[in-house]
Design a binder for these strands. Structure first.
Lengths: 212, 212
DNA sequence: TTGATCATTTTTGCATTCAAAATAGTTCCT
DNA sequence: AGGAACTATTTTGAATGCAAAAATGATCAA
């Protein structure tokens, strides 16, 4: 029971950037702050290393994983595939209740767009994508998606988003909701693909801009 | 360095079915057989639990994960998405050398089909799919694929394969190679989808037959 | 004989300890 | 002074130890 606790606390520390990417992970300090011994912490480190959040250097400790440009590209490519698949699977499986929930999130998101509230917009956007993945009713897919999304998020790409792109994203989301309501699996997969590809290109551009 | 060693040895033990799905994992015995203490073994168990090969029951030890019918379905759905994505990404990236390698594997596979050597056929088939994933040049994708493929393989679905399906699979593989050579990303993704969906349906049918 | 309760043994989870490796610091030589 | 070599300290990786929990089995009552 404690093991999962340690893993999620450590994941949280890494996700919140308390230990920045590339930085050494101070075993002893974390043990003290979590009030545990090194054994469970080291187990958690190995698990997070398998997840890709931590890199283990033999005899030289562990560091918070650093995302290279290529890593980000790879994560986006996989994210794209997973979300498209989720959408396709969700279409025949989604319940009216879930559909209603997404429609509501969508409405909220548009509100935040109107108010130009980027942070709330992002939160809604994320909830919608997560809801679609949930509707796919596939635990393996959901697990992979969570892992990929977490790693992408950790890169903290809160790209300012150009007005045109933001508008386009909103339009695409209308299309997503529409396809879901029409249970158009193929159409939804296609929209999600282009939607995410656009986001990826935007992020990659921003990434290049800031160097690495 | 020892850590990875233990993880892969343990994975091997599980994959080869030396510990059958659902069985308890005898910590002390494995420690003795690997000639290590419990600490590194337990770390490995946690890593494999994160991979889905092991389930940890708090205060009740660990067991080899047992695949339910739903698990198999989920794994196949994700496998389908990953391979289709791999094919799509591989098209623009694959080298002539890699293409040649796959063509050769394909020729071998057809030979094994002619000789009705199912085991060799499966081996070639697997190598081809792995080669496509490798050609996609995406480490995240490759890692997920490996994990999913391993779990599917462990279920040991060496379904006898009806002659018609076998013939169809061979045809589809011709199509796969063709699309790769023409660098037809969309076409390849489509063929891979149907190819794997067919296999899934076959396996699921066999699974239902034997109850689970 | 069956079933329930309690003691014994085993197993699990974490803390601690120990040896080896890496890092830092110091001395010595040029 | 600058740099190589050696020693001391810290840190890592794995073994062992210990308390708590579960599994086993033994005893006893119905």
């Amino acid at each position: 029971m404690m093991h999962d606790e340690v893993v999620s606390r450590l994941r949280h520390v890494l996700m919140e950037g308390e230990i920045p990417p590339g930085a050494r992970i101070p075993e002893r300090e974390l043990c003290a702050s979590f009030a545990i011994s090194r054994t469970p912490l080291r187990e958690a480190l190995k698990v997070l290393a398998a997840e890709g959040l931590v890199v283990l250097l033999p005899n030289r400790g562990s560091r918070a994983a650093k995302l290279t440009q290529k890593d980000v590209k790879e994560l986006f490519e996989v994210c794209e595939a997973l979300e498209a698949a989720a959408g396709e699977l969700a279409c025949p499986r989604i319940s009216d209740e879930q559909l209603r929930e997404i429609a509501e999130l969508q409405a909220n998101m548009v509100e935040h767009y109107r108010a130009q509230d980027l942070l709330s917009y992002y939160r809604c956007n994320r909830l919608i994508h997560e809801a679609i993945v949930r509707a796919a009713d596939n635990a393996v897919l959901a697990g992979f998606y969570e892992s990929v999304a977490a790693r992408i998020r950790r890169a903290r790409f809160i790209t300012p988003m150009s007005p045109e792109h933001w508008g386009l994203a909103i339009q695409e989301h209308e299309g997503i909701l529409n396809a879901l309501q029409r249970r158009d699996a193929r159409g939804l997969a296609h929209i999600l693909h282009t939607h995410l590809r656009r986001k990826r290109e935007e992020v990659v551009r921003a990434g290049f801009a800031e160097g690495e």
